[in-house]
Amino acid sequence: MSARATWATAVRVLAQLRRDPRTILLIVGVPCLLETLLKEIYSGRPAVFQHVGGPLLGLFPFVSMFVVTSVTMLRERVSGTLERLMSMPIGKLDLLTGYASAFAVMAVAQATLVSLLAFGLLDLHVAGPRWGVVTLAVGNALLGMGLGLLVSAFARSEFQAVQFMPAVVLPQFLLSGILVARHDMARWLQIVSDVLPLTYAYDALAGIVRGGPYGGRFVLDVGITAGAVLVALALAAVTLRRRTG
């Protein structure tokens, strides 16, 4: 591991994002818009907004970073820069941690700004600590990034990479329990959701929204989410090949 290579990569990825203000605007603006919409749609039933708004805040970065990462990494593969990097003295883990650091910075910015809006203007309440929501949001961003890196290995074009979003993200989202409580789902759907990482990320967020308890179940949810991040990154590292056909 080389801190210099990791740092250089993080700075480079952030510089690339900075050149693309529209994407930054989308990353921050879309969640703000959706939270506002949610509030307005359920203006007659404010309890729904209070129930869903918090977890959604923590899950947005998962979706954004999944899309941004899979496209960025695909470009890296297609443009030949990955081939160049693989012929240079940079470890695969340095590259991935560089990416992770850059997207974590983005996720902190995204989650903070959306929180300011939701807690400040939209009167969203969570019983637990707000920083807990932001922290989990960053964790979910890294999860989205790990999965995004992974699927970029299977996409041949940016079009395909974007199409992975509904394929990988939406089912996890629907099954996580955010829309329908998991115990109300059919048995087989529960079993499927048991193996999807977002289920645990949602559970942890819902725990904070409720204000606890922060016992074994909560620790397990957070642990599984963190574990899923590491597994996704490890699998992504495997898809980075020094030698290709």
Binding site: R4, A5, W7, A8, T9, V11, R12, A15, Q16, R19, D20, S79, G80, T81, E83, R84, L85, S87, M88, P89, I90
Partner: peptide, 26 residues
């Protein structure tokens, strides 16, 4: 190594590209 198709980041400046690769190479 220079690949046949230019393999540099299209969204960075020439200098930013070179600085990144220079950092990797020390």
């Amino acid at each position: 190594y220079v690949t046949q198709a230019p393999s540099i980041y299209a969204d960075l400046t020439v200098r930013e590209n070179l600085r990144y690769f220079a950092r990797l190479l020390n």
